[in-house]
Design a protein around this nucleic acid. Structure first.
Lengths: 334, 334
DNA sequence: CTGAAAGCGCTAACAA
DNA sequence: TTGTTAGCGCTTTCAG
């Protein structure tokens, strides 16, 4: 920078002013500085800028697993919005490890990033203390409401309820829920919330629920969905519809049913959750709940940027992204 | 840090020594420093460390699109290997924009990251100059060999050749290639290389190639695959096998065929490329070329880390990750 | 083995 | 409007 200043015959401060687009600069000086920068091929050293200004220009995004299409698509959306605001993104996948999740959060103390967008999966409510701090933070999903920071929530309950209502309207009487989760010591999770939404819808429609139809899975991948169907069919479980709690599970369900000669939607209707892009191209194409991922990303990034600019964490609040049922072949509108 | 030094009754230099695990420290001092750090909850400020040491502890990963399962799985693998070496990863998706690709590369001049792992998509050979520099760099894929840096290549040609040989052995005579690319002013691309591998295999087996069977697509998503089949069928193209140049295309192909009542593998066999995890759970499950993604990630990260530790870019060289055909239902072993 | 001190390159008061 | 200058918090010689 000193070189540029010398070359342009101005002070380093003026170069800094130019770089940071500060007002009150003669057009002439701006021109000269610009020319010198160009000639010398100067580029700011971001570490120095960071040390002095306290800003890294980086947002940290922590998600459970990039291999889940839902999260990779979300990450892409976040990258996109962040770039629009001039920020880079450090992506961290917690790979379903609670320790990694906690470590990643603790690392915020080293000022590697200006803010954190966190989609927690395994943290427990007694872990929320690690999130204490004044750095900008946005929580994604509906977990951990004890945290005093903005939450961008998705319609887990209402989305699942809509999906269930849709199946009931189509005449389903026995809906198997794949990926279902039941109350676990006060913790919330997408699975739990979606399951709950489903049960609420059943109740609202006066349909009795059958615990046998709530099928838990180890993970939330296609493999788990296929396995769940396999096992259900083998033990003679009767069902005329499946609500898979995410699309990857639903793909596996479609495959599992197909393998057993069960026609979709003829014999069994299937609905997923997430509206991952490939779901339109399954055969049959998948009816699913669209949680409006781009909106989630937009709200999250905007909040984090606002907090960064304001210089600290914003108080707890909830914004919801809205959702919609995408009706396709696996469970056409009745 | 000064606080810690004061609290422990030592100099800041000793604290720094402790932090950086330098040798020659009395066990007693180490203990005291550790205790003070613990008590004060001290965490190093990475910007200051970076400014002074010139190392960010960050690797930049540039890929075309996180929504492509191939790239999100690759990114996850890279994240994993990088973490194993103590590095964080700044992910940048170039979203199929050449300008963005170039901008991202230029930003390396600001020392935001210690090294760059680049999977180029749209750069042209006349753009390679932007990659000039001494910073650690690893190129992914088989493009841009003019760049003087290590390349981790995948078996595009040989993988496609194997897939083709497999189809021919199964009795296929007319193989439609979906996503095919032909020579374009000296540029290489995965599509081109895979197409070339296919043609080579045809030739090796004495099978005439029919240009009509080389079908280009706009993108490489399921949608493009489904459209390609749709159009081929509509214009009466005859084929008894499909080589889709990536799995997402293949999924679309499976759907397209299914919609038209074409049985897979009975009427038409289908093979993909990438062995993305969900491909095992399509119905039928997809035969595909496994490019050994984890190995690609491992080689890339190890090379970049080695370069970072050596303090600069390594000379051009090629390491290949190896590949294997995964035979599944869409084209069983004959 | 430990401490003192000189910057890394930049930004932001403050002065001019 | 532009210039001077004091650090940001750490690492790293170099002395002791």
């Amino acid at each position: 920078m000193a070189d540029v200043a010398r070359d342009a015959g101005v002070s380093v401060a003026s170069v800094s002013n130019y770089l940071n687009k500060r007002p009150y600069m003669s057009a002439d000086m701006a021109r000269r500085v610009a020319a010198s920068i160009e000639r010398l091929g100067y580029q700011v050293n971001s570490s120095a800028r960071t040390l002095r200004s306290g800003r890294t220009g980086l947002i940290k995004l922590m998600i459970p697993d990039l291999r889940q299409p839902y999260f990779s698509e979300l990450a892409e959306d976040v990258l996109d919005r962040a770039r629009a605001h001039g920020y880079g993104v450090i992506v961290e996948s917690t790979t379903n490890s609670r320790e990694r999740e906690l470590d990643g959060i603790r690392a915020m103390g080293t000022n590697m990033a200006d803010g954190l967008i966190l989609s927690p999966l395994l943290m427990r409510s007694d872990d929320v203390a690690v999130l204490d701090g004044d750095y900008p933070l946005v929580m994604l999903g509906e977990r951990l409401f004890g945290v005093d920071a903005p939450h961008v929530i998705i319609g887990n309950r209402s989305g699942a309820a809509d999906a269930t209502a849709h199946l009931l309207a189509a005449g389903a009487t026995r809906i198997m829920v794949v990926g279902a989760a039941l109350e676990e010591r006060g913790e919330t999770s997408s699975g739990l919330l979606r399951t709950r939404g489903h049960l609420e819808a059943l109740r609202a429609h006066g349909v009795a629920s059958d615990l046998d139809l709530l099928v838990g899975t180890e993970g939330w991948g296609s493999r788990d969905g296929a396995l769940a169907v396999e096992r259900a069919l083998n033990r003679g479980l009767r069902f005329d519809a499946v609500l898979a709690l995410n699309d990857a599970l639903a793909w596996g369900v479609l495959r599992g049913l197909r393998e057993h000669g069960v026609d979709v939607p003829g014999d069994v209707r299937v609905v997923g959750f997430d509206d991952v892009s490939e779901s339109s191209y399954m055969s049959p194409s998948l009816t699913t709940v669209d949680p409006n991922r781009p909106e989630v990303a937009r709200l999250a990034v905007e909040s984090i940027v606002r907090q960064i600019e304001a210089g600290g964490r914003a108080p707890a609040m909830r914004v919801e992204a809205g959702h919609a049922l995408r009706t396709r072949e696996s469970s056409p509108a009745s």
